[in-house]
Measured scan of single mutants.
Amino acid sequence: TPAEQLLSKCPWKEYKSDSGKPYYYNSQTKESRWAKPKELEDLEGYQNTIV
């Protein structure tokens, strides 16, 4: 779907730490963070409005 294509192009991906806590990693900037990036939230919100 178009929304899945947008998400696949987003540099932010969700991973799980050893303790199972989700964290987010940007493959372009090599940045990681615990809080979900706004860019990823926006894309997921867009995906939910299409489905």
Score class of each variant (00 low, 15 high):
Lys30Ser: 06
Lys38Ile: 05
Ser8Glu: 14
Lys38Ala: 06
Ser27Ala: 06
Glu39Tyr: 00
Pro22Ser: 10
Ser17Asn: 11
Gln5Met: 09
Gln47Val: 06
Trp12Gln: 01
Tyr23Met: 05
Glu44Met: 08
Gln5Trp: 05
Asn48Pro: 09
Glu41Phe: 11
Lys21Glu: 08
Pro2Glu: 15
Glu4Ser: 04
Lys9Asp: 13
Thr49Val: 05
Lys16Met: 07
Lys36His: 04
Tyr25Cys: 02
Lys16Ile: 08
Tyr23Leu: 04
Leu7Asp: 15
Gly45Asn: 14
Glu31Asp: 05
Tyr23His: 02
Pro37Asp: 04
Pro11Lys: 01
Leu6Pro: 12
Lys13Leu: 09
Ala3Leu: 12
Ser19Lys: 12
Tyr24Val: 00
Lys30Cys: 15
Lys21Ala: 09
Arg33Gln: 11
Pro2Arg: 10
Lys30Trp: 00
Asn26Phe: 00
Glu41Gln: 15
Asp42Lys: 07
Asn26Val: 01
Gln28Cys: 06
Arg33Gly: 05
Gln28Lys: 06
Trp12Asp: 13
Ser17Lys: 04
Glu14Leu: 06
Leu40Glu: 14
Thr29Gly: 01
Lys30His: 10
Ala35Cys: 11
Val51Leu: 11
Glu31Gly: 00
Ser19Phe: 06
Thr1Ser: 05
Leu40Ser: 03
Ile50Cys: 14
Lys38Asp: 04
Lys30Ile: 01
Asn48Val: 00
Tyr15Asn: 03
Asn26Met: 00
Lys38Asn: 05
Arg33Leu: 12
Lys38Trp: 10
Glu39Asn: 04
Tyr24Asp: 03
Glu44Ala: 06
Lys30Val: 00
Lys21Val: 08
Leu40Arg: 04
Ala3Ile: 10
Asp18Ile: 12
Asp18Val: 08
Ala35Tyr: 04
Glu4Met: 08
Cys10Met: 13
Asn48Ala: 08
Gln28Asp: 04
Arg33Glu: 02
Gly45Ile: 10
Asp42Cys: 01
Asp42Ile: 09
Leu6Lys: 11
Tyr23Lys: 04
Ser19Leu: 06
Pro22Cys: 07
Lys30Glu: 06
Ala3Arg: 11
Asn48Gly: 09
Lys16Phe: 09
Thr29Cys: 10
Ser19Thr: 10
Tyr46Gln: 10
Val51Ala: 14
Glu31Ser: 01
Asn26His: 00
Cys10His: 14
Gly20Val: 00
Tyr25Leu: 03
Ala3Asp: 14
Asn48Lys: 11
Gly20Arg: 01
Ile50Met: 15
Ser27Lys: 13
Lys9Ala: 15
Leu7Phe: 15
Lys13Trp: 03
Asn48Thr: 10
Lys30Ala: 08
Asn48Cys: 03
Tyr23Ser: 04
Tyr24Asn: 02
Leu40Asp: 02
Ser27Cys: 13
Leu43His: 13
Lys9Cys: 03
Thr1Ala: 09
Thr49Pro: 07
Ser8Val: 12
Glu31Cys: 04
Pro11Ala: 14
Asn26Thr: 01
Glu14His: 04
Gly20Trp: 00
Lys9Gln: 13
Lys13Ala: 13
Arg33Ser: 12
Trp34Tyr: 11
Thr49Gln: 12
Ser32Ala: 06
Lys13Glu: 09
Lys36Pro: 05
Lys9Met: 04
Gly20Ala: 00
Ser8Cys: 08
Leu7Gln: 01
Tyr24Thr: 02
Tyr46Asp: 13
Tyr23Glu: 01
Gly45His: 13
Asn26Ala: 03
Tyr23Ile: 05
Thr49Met: 10
Lys36Ser: 03
Trp34Gly: 11
Leu7Tyr: 03
Ala3Trp: 08
Lys36Thr: 06
Arg33Lys: 13
Pro22Lys: 10
Lys13Pro: 00
Asn48Trp: 00
Tyr23Asp: 05
Trp34Gln: 11
Lys38His: 00
Gly45Arg: 13
Cys10Lys: 06
Tyr24Ala: 04
Glu14Met: 12
Thr29Gln: 01
Ile50Leu: 13
Tyr25Arg: 04
Glu39Cys: 02
Trp12Arg: 03
Leu6Tyr: 04
Gly45Phe: 14
Pro22Ile: 12
Ser27Asp: 03
Lys38Gln: 09
Asn26Glu: 00
Trp12Lys: 08
Glu44His: 08
Ala35Pro: 01
Tyr24His: 02
Ala35Phe: 06
Trp12Ala: 08
Val51Thr: 05
Leu7Ser: 15
Leu6Ala: 15
Pro37Leu: 01
Lys38Thr: 07
Ser32Val: 12
Thr1Arg: 00
Gln47Lys: 05
Glu44Ile: 06
Leu43Ser: 13
